[in-house]
């Protein structure tokens, strides 16, 4: 539905965004790929200007055989998966609750959305110190009040603690999308189901849940994009200790903390491959669902 004129205009107007993103993707990617085949330890005097030593796949082999590699992949998947499950399950429940008639819905909605505005560094610091601190944290007080021994949250239950913090940040997003989706559900459909004698649980399972499938897909897509990249939460709370080292964080440590750029870059390539596998899987699902 367009003329040749508008089609060429369209290509022209899309060009800046496409070229910028292509550059943003390709330039650093090529460099990372290049470094991953080199020995590159800036602190020992290696530099691009002096030429880097070609080491073939040595960095790849070393990164893969490092004892931190598989645990980091595992930690990444546990965190992403855990947060997704929690935010979607609680998001659906919360959305259904917020869809009911009540007083002060606006205020409740603001309170529920609020965590999304809190920057990750702040939320991590607040949770780490004021809630999860084993002596002075609120949770410690709560445990003591019930006569229990306070938990060393970030060392003894590091992964669940991290998942809790990140879920708190992302629950508002999931809830809001799901709430919007529920509100768009035709109430006549539910009434028809009720007339047909479907009990509450069946109505949820056969009408509400299928209606939400598109919204759930979007929650999964967007959250995964952001969750794979979580950094500040780990940086501030455990610094990657106690099994919370995600693949991203492991690479960060290799590159910046131990200044082994070659090794870190090889890790980066692994991370990019992993992300691409996830991306392809997600896009398959989402691409289909985006049309509706």
């Amino acid at each position: 539905m367009a003329t040749q004129h508008s089609r060429s205009a369209a290509r022209l107007m899309m060009a800046p965004a496409v070229i910028l993103l292509l550059g943003w993707m390709l330039v650093p990617l090529t460099m990372t790929l290049f470094f991953s085949f080199k020995k590159y330890l800036p602190l020992r005097g290696d530099s691009v200007a002096n030429g880097l030593e070609w080491v073939g796949f040595a960095n790849y082999a070393r990164f893969l055989s490092s004892s931190s590699f598989w645990p980091s992949v595992q930690a990444t998947l546990i965190i992403v998966g855990g947060v997704l499950v929690i935010t979607i399950v609680f998001g659906i429940l919360l959305a259904i609750l917020l869809d009911q008639p009540m007083w002060g819905q606006g205020v409740v909605r603001i309170m529920v959305i609020a965590p999304f505005f809190v920057m990750p560094t702040v939320s991590a610091l607040v949770w780490k110190n004021m809630f999860m601190d084993p002596t002075n944290g609120i949770l410690a007080h709560l445990w003591k009040a019930f006569g229990a021994e306070p938990v060393q949250w970030l060392s003894q239950a590091s992964l669940p603690s991290l998942i809790l913090i990140v879920s708190w940040q992302w629950l508002p997003f999931a809830t809001l999308i799901l709430l919007t989706a529920i509100q768009s559900l035709d109430s006549e459909q539910l009434e028809a189901a009720e007339m047909d004698g479907a009990p509450v649980l069946k109505r949820f399972w056969f009408i509400i849940l299928p209606h939400l499938s598109r919204a759930i897909t979007i929650v999964i897509l967007i959250q995964t994009i952001f969750l794979l990249a979580i950094f500040a939460e780990i940086f501030v709370t455990t610094g990657g200790a106690f099994g919370t080292k995600t693949l991203s964080y492991l690479i960060f440590q290799r590159v910046l903390e131990s200044q082994n750029v070659g090794l870190g870059s090889a890790g980066g390539v692994y991370a990019i491959i992993l992300a691409n596998i996830l991306a392809v899987l997600l896009m398959r699902v989402v691409g289909k669902n985006l049309d509706a």
């Binding site: 496409v18 650093p28 460099m31 994009i225 794979l228 960060f252 590159v255 980066g268 990019i272 996830l278």
Partner: peptide, 22 residues
């Protein structure tokens, strides 16, 4: 649609992977 999904997929590139080049 492909362009749009490709754009979104650039967001999935792990930032750490390209931190040092940048």
């Amino acid at each position: 649609k492909d362009i749009l999904l490709w754009m979104l997929s650039t967001k999935m590139l792990p930032a750490v992977g390209v931190l040092y080049p940048i």
